[in-house]
Amino acid sequence: MAEQARGKVEVNQDECKGCGLCVESCPPKGLTLSPELNHYGVHPAQYHAEICTGCGICYFVCPEPGAITVYRLAVAKSEVSDAATV
């Protein structure tokens, strides 16, 4: 069984405007723009791979207040770097 990712990302497909800043900023490149259009006619971001470190960069570069939620693995909390120290 593959090691569980240290973090995960949820993108609110309804709030995302598809600007792609999170896609470009994600250090492990775990985000892409969906090939599907959402109902505003944009390609929203989506988390596609189990490689999130939970760094939170995508959250801070995203211009929308709640389009992105970042999670961290409970046990791994002390091991990951806080986004603020990047």
């Binding site: 939170g56 959250y59 961290r72 693995l73 409970a74």
Partner: peptide
Amino acid sequence: MSEYNVSQCRTPVF
């Protein structure tokens, strides 16, 4: 499997 906790999300200041 370990649980995931929210680390960054919409702030209630909005």
